[in-house]
């Protein structure tokens, strides 16, 4: 019997199995993306991002507190805290108006979660930090100007 031919077949089968495993591995990030709102995060303007994320871009002024520095020396690390006294909040979004893609993050509040989120964001240049809160199907927003002396997106 031709052993070389047998060996070749075995080798190609092993490679085939590896290929299947590879493509299965590649599928997982795609599945993650389904939950992650790609359209909203890739949107290039605040309005577009809000429409994609919340279904509407019209917001009312709300009693939302934004704690962020007036001047951020380093745009790569801008601490932002968003809180509100409103009830029934189910989503909070934090946007930076002058970033290439303004939506930095969004938070889905589960049962019991209080409308309070604190994190650190990157800002490319001076602009507004906008907090949008969804409460009872309506959107409320507030913003705060943050001056950035060194950008955090280039480098």
């Amino acid at each position: 019997m031709n052993t070389k031919r047998r060996l070749f077949l075995k080798g190609s089968m092993a490679a085939g199995a590896a290929g299947v495993a590879m493509s299965a591995g590649l599928l997982t990030p795609g599945m993650v993306l389904a939950a992650w709102n790609e359209g909203a995060f890739k949107a290039k303007s605040v309005d577009e991002a809000l429409s994609a994320l919340m279904g509407s871009s019209s917001t009312e002024a709300g009693k939302i507190k934004i704690k962020a520095p007036d001047i951020a020396e380093n745009g790569a690390v801008v601490p932002v805290t968003v809180s509100t006294d409103m009830g029934g909040v189910d989503t909070i979004a934090i946007l930076a108006s002058n970033n290439p893609t303004p939506l930095t993050s969004s938070y889905e509040l589960g049962e019991g979660a209080l409308p309070y989120v604190s994190t650190r964001i990157k800002m490319g240049k001076t602009g507004k930090v906008i907090a949008v809160v969804k409460s009872g199907g309506k959107l409320y927003s507030a913003s705060k100007e943050v001056k950035v002396t060194i950008g955090g997106c280039g480098g």
């Binding site: 790569a76 893609t101 930095t104 969004s106 889905e108 309070y116 994190t119």
Partner: peptide, 15 residues
């Protein structure tokens, strides 16, 4: 929390 690349390196989150 849904994040993008605009969250700082070694992220901090509090709630």
């Amino acid at each position: 929390a849904n994040w993008s690349g605009a969250i700082s390196k070694n992220p901090y989150l509090s709630f």
